Computed example of a mutant assay.
Amino acid sequence: MTDSVKDAIRKAAMFCAYQERTQQEVRDRLKDWGVFGDDAEEVIAELIQQNYLNEERFAKSFAGGKFRVKGWGRRKITQHLKQRGISGYNLDQAMKEIAPDDYRGTLTTLLNKKRQSLHDANPLVIKQKLVRYALSKGYESDLIFSVLGGE
Rank of each mutant, 00 (worst) to 15 (best):
T108F: 12
T22P: 00
G150D: 15
N122Y: 03
T108P: 06
F36R: 12
L118G: 02
C16R: 02
H119A: 12
E25L: 03
L110D: 00
D142I: 13
L135I: 05
G64S: 00
Y103F: 06
M95P: 02
I126D: 01
K129E: 11
R132Y: 01
W72Y: 15
G85C: 08
R115E: 10
K66M: 15
E46W: 13
V69C: 11
G138C: 03
I9G: 01
L135G: 09
G34P: 03
G88S: 01
S61R: 02
G150F: 14
D102A: 07
M1W: 10
K31Q: 10
Q79P: 01
D3Y: 14
Q49I: 04
K137I: 02
G88H: 04
R10K: 13
F145P: 11
L107I: 03
L30H: 05
Q116H: 13
K76V: 02
L30V: 04
T2L: 10
T106S: 14
A99F: 11
I44G: 04
I44N: 06
G37K: 05
L81G: 13
R57F: 04
F15S: 01
R104Y: 12
S141P: 12
M1K: 11
R75Q: 15
A17I: 04
V147Q: 04
G73L: 06
D28F: 07
Q128W: 02
R75P: 14
L148I: 06
R74V: 06
Q128E: 10
R68L: 14
G73V: 01
E140I: 09
K70A: 13
S136P: 11
